[in-house]
């Protein structure tokens, strides 16, 4: 279980990235995290991935507290977290298969079972036949699915995806969300930070809404949260016009 109790991150004096955040995520839960730009989504993701330590409060992942884990033990905590990036971050010099296997090799997982695990991860993202392809030969959607396979190949407790669909078209967005929900169904906790509420809403996931560093809404799965979303953070539920992002 992941639990946050009044977690805050202060960057400079009185400049808080996030403040007073409390929630828990259970094994197998599929959770969407949203909010306007600058609401603190990325900060929260970095706290959850143990990249940054909270300034206040307590963040526990499987009983281990962020900030009190010894530097030496940090790698072992990170092995319990799979991370999916907006920009995929595949290593361009090796095949899709090797990109997925990289995680297992770098963490010293035994050679026994390595192939089976990689094949299973590739199958889960629907790319069984593309293992030999180099990243440059894959479409954006396919690259991100390799990124997903890489995040889950080590059977993590938690998968964190920060804007995993930011660079994808609608069909591919849907595909990525489908896979993430499938991963959650397999017992992994999944947290997706996204702007793509239109797609996210289709999946009727539990939704956490951040605004100005605060958790303003925790809408349970399957709830009709649209009205609440519009009320609390109107700028979130409105489709973002691409022209405004430039």
């Amino acid at each position: 279980m992941i639990s946050l109790n009044k977690v805050g991150k202060e960057f400079r004096r009185d400049r808080w990235g996030v403040k007073d955040i409390s929630f828990t995520i259970d094994k197998g839960e599929f959770v969407v995290l949203t909010g306007p730009s600058g609401a603190g989504k990325t900060t929260l993701m970095k706290l959850l991935s143990f990249e940054q330590q909270p300034s206040t409060g307590e963040l526990l992942l499987e009983g281990r507290a962020n900030g009190r884990v010894k530097k030496r033990e940090l790698p072992y905590v990170r092995r319990r977290i799979g991370v999916v990036f907006q920009d995929f971050r595949l290593l361009p010099d090796r095949t899709a298969y090797e990109n997925v296997a990289f995680v297992l090799r770098a963490t010293g997982a035994g050679r026994k079972g390595l192939h089976r695990r990689v094949v299973r991860a590739l199958a889960l993202v629907g790319l069984s036949g593309r293992g030999d392809a180099m990243p440059s030969e894959l479409s954006g959607g396919e690259q991100q699915r390799i990124g997903l396979a890489r995040a889950i190949v080590s059977d993590p407790f938690l998968v964190l995806a920060d804007e995993p669909t930011g660079n994808l078209d609608d069909d591919n967005k849907r595909e990525v969300f489908k896979i993430l929900r499938k991963v959650a169904a397999g017992g992994t906790a999944v947290l997706v930070a996204t702007h793509d509420l239109n797609v996210a809403r289709e999946f009727r996931a539990r939704t956490l809404i951040l605004d100005k560093g605060r958790l303003v809404k925790d809408a349970p799965a399957g709830s009709e949260s649209e009205a609440a979303l519009a009320a609390v953070a109107p700028h979130v539920s409105r489709p973002v016009r691409t022209g405004m992002n430039v």
């Binding site: 790698p75 072992y76 990170r78 092995r79 977290i81 991370v83 990289f102 770098a106 963490t107 010293g108």
Partner: peptide, 11 residues
């Protein structure tokens, strides 16, 4: 990437 996936400093 190695850091994120939990490789030790030595590795």
């Amino acid at each position: 990437l190695m850091k994120m996936v939990g490789a030790t400093i030595g590795v």
